[in-house]
């Protein structure tokens, strides 16, 4: 069994080498790639999931569909989707298939929270709005949507953290990102590249935890004060939670 002598010491040395930051394919490059891929994937996910979720919630139908989508994506291995999509798109190994694959994993939490957000709107508020003569579209835009904002924020946090975590796997399909640092470390071999492996792990994990904390703060900010406590935290629907690990 090959193990590294002093991985943490090696990792500190590796991170302290300025060249490892600024080289082509260095940390800054990889961080940029990672953030670009993740941002595009989350944006694409929002574009698809939010209108659909809000609309289904407004109609009060399709709850089964939402659950089905969550459960189906739970069982699909990330790696499989990342490798299959380049074939489907026939575009080779560019960013597009990676972004689409990651967006697929962003959809369930976004969709579930948008749906729940509209559904949980107080029926009395809805009745009052109807009584005031609001049309169906106005009701969605002026009453249900504002009330759903905390849920949308919770879904956004879950989805973003999950996509940032999953984007590390893009390195398997030459999609770049911070995962590439870990993969290169394994390429060198554990004895020599142990430090780089740990350093890459620290970067990937740090970015995910940072996103969780920052977006958690955003979620708090957009949640009206009276709703902050006592509400069942729906930020992490169970099914979406489990997919978050890949």
């Amino acid at each position: 069994m090959i193990v590294a002598a002093n991985p943490i010491g090696q990792a500190i040395t590796w991170i302290n080498d300025p060249l490892n930051w600024t080289n082509p394919g260095g940390m800054l490059d990889r961080l940029g790639e990672h953030l670009t891929i993740s941002a595009l994937a989350v944006a694409l996910g929002c574009l698809v999931a939010w209108p659909l979720g809000l609309w289904l919630g407004h109609l009060g139908r399709g709850g089964g569909l939402v659950v089905l989508i969550s459960n189906a994506t739970l069982a699909i291995p990330t790696l499989a989707l990342l490798t299959i999509l380049p074939v489907v798109f026939a575009s080779g190994f560019g960013k597009t298939p990676v972004v689409v694959a990651l967006a697929v994993f962003a959809v369930p939490p976004l969709l579930a929270n948008a749906y729940t957000g509209v559904r949980q709107a107080d029926p009395e508020a809805r009745d009052a709005a109807r009584g005031m003569g609001l049309s169906s579209a106005q009701l969605l835009r002026r009453v249900e949507l504002p009330l759903a904002v905390p849920y949308l924020a919770a879904g956004f946090r879950t989805a973003a953290v999950q996509v940032i975590a999953t984007a590390a796997l893009a390195s398997f399909v030459n999609g770049g990102g911070l995962g590439q640092i870990i993969r290169t470390g394994f390429g060198i071999g554990i004895a020599a590249g142990g430090g780089q492996i740990v350093a890459g792990g620290v970067l990937v994990a740090g970015l995910a935890l940072l996103a969780e904390v920052v977006l958690g703060g955003v979620e708090r900010l957009v949640t009206p004060k009276p709703l902050r406590r006592g509400r069942q935290r729906l930020g992490r629907p169970r099914a979406a939670d489990a997919t978050g690990s890949a």
Binding site: I190, V204, A205
Partner: peptide, 19 residues
Amino acid sequence: YTIPSLALFAFIAPYLGTG
């Protein structure tokens, strides 16, 4: 749970080897 799987494996592998 929030730590991405790739990072978690990266933390463990240097200590336990590639097994």
